[in-house]
Design a protein around this nucleic acid. Sequence first.
DNA 1: CAGCCTGTGTTGTCTATACAATAAAAAGCA
DNA 2: TGCTTTTTATTGTATAGACAACACAGGCTG
Lengths: 250, 250
Amino acid sequence: MDKLTTQTGRPPLYQQVKEYIIDKINDSALLPGMKIESEAELVAGLNVSRMTVNRALRELTAEGRIKRIQGRGTFVADRKPQAALLQISSIAEEIRARGGSYSCTVHLLQEEKAKPSVALAMQLQPYAPVFHSIIVHKDHKVPIQLGCRYINPRIAPAYLNQDFSRITVSDYLLSIAAVTAVEHIVEALIPDPWIRDLLEINAAEPCLALHRKTWVGELVATSSTFYSPGSRYTLGGKFTPTASGSIDIA
Amino acid sequence: MDKLTTQTGRPPLYQQVKEYIIDKINDSALLPGMKIESEAELVAGLNVSRMTVNRALRELTAEGRIKRIQGRGTFVADRKPQAALLQISSIAEEIRARGGSYSCTVHLLQEEKAKPSVALAMQLQPYAPVFHSIIVHKDHKVPIQLGCRYINPRIAPAYLNQDFSRITVSDYLLSIAAVTAVEHIVEALIPDPWIRDLLEINAAEPCLALHRKTWVGELVATSSTFYSPGSRYTLGGKFTPTASGSIDIA
DNA sequence: CAGCCTGTGTTGTCTATACAATAAAAAGCA
DNA sequence: TGCTTTTTATTGTATAGACAACACAGGCTG
């Protein structure tokens, strides 16, 4: 173990300590579950103070590379999954999250046009207020996505008064209460005629659907979003699952 | 500003400092972009040492709640998007990432059965080696997903020697080199006859497809995964996008 | 033997102090 | 005025020391 030094041009000491540990793990000198040198040993071996070692190990813990147990020691963490089966959101929210860099416009539909989708009907009978919107590409003038939301009547009045062409549904729900759970389900389906009509889809053309349930303690909102075929949706990023998933076989 | 104390039953001081800041932000007493009290002011006001304040602010920075600029001060961070349009991975990887809690088995297909999918054909002509697998639910004995991979010949020999019923493709690619980029595209489609055959899909039944490209500097692998209709895929989690996305209108 | 106590090793937190690095304002100067 | 230098405020890093909290092994006691 070479002693570390703080020289100009070198990264800070705590960073060097982190790299020392990471290198050992990447070189398979330390395998998942194995015990790492204690803070005291690192202090002696690397010639740095304990607080510096402590900070390095604390950050590595936050980054999920190691696991520390008070009274026992520090261990190499098991490799966590970096991707999960599915994480999806609507274009409408993405548009605003990215500061309107997507050239789309949101149109709210008259409530008379509201018809329950087949997929939602079973779940959402008691959630009367229906709220439909359609997003159209600014340049191509083609409909991109259709959103259908069913809201718990208990919070419906305030909900319907919002201007959802300016605020996202997610933001609104977060502002009135702490969302306790969100579930996303994705499926491919042949859309109903009224959806085909709104999205200008040819008969028998398959379409991507995203169903979402939101809980604030109880179930407060559900939504189905239908994506126009011909549009492809792509995004990069890193996802760490925090809840257990499931595969339902119908 | 009430002075903080360290009593049994209370969270540690640095945590209390964090909560003090978070509360101010959540109460809209501090809006995005506004300057926060300096470390010295917090030290005096909260009656804790500077290292404790420093740790609290450092962690809040890592959590994306505040932004610190050396020489200028500490500011409330802009709200980052908490959801992204799409993040998806294959069931096969999910099965192993979760320690085999899903009761599915992986079958590798003879290479003779390999046929290029329509969606991939245009992109992947030069990537000769084809590698197909099918995943079957253990209890229901129904096929769940079909994976088709096209590999850059430069790394193909070693790739094809792997036992992918034991190691995931992602893990393998990560082990041989640093993956520089991954792109996911999802679509709904009516599958080709040979896919229908393998997944036991009725004619005209729509199916969910995930196309993935992996770069290690250059494009090294692409894959298409077809999910059986009738299966629904759901997962919870939190996703912070790190790359810009796009919406392609066909 | 079972249960309790104690010592040791380990991580968790907190403090006081020091110096470095950066940015902006103030002062000095031609 | 316009430019440079200095000062000041602020965050970034590093240290030594202290005590708390926890886990475990070994010894003690009934």
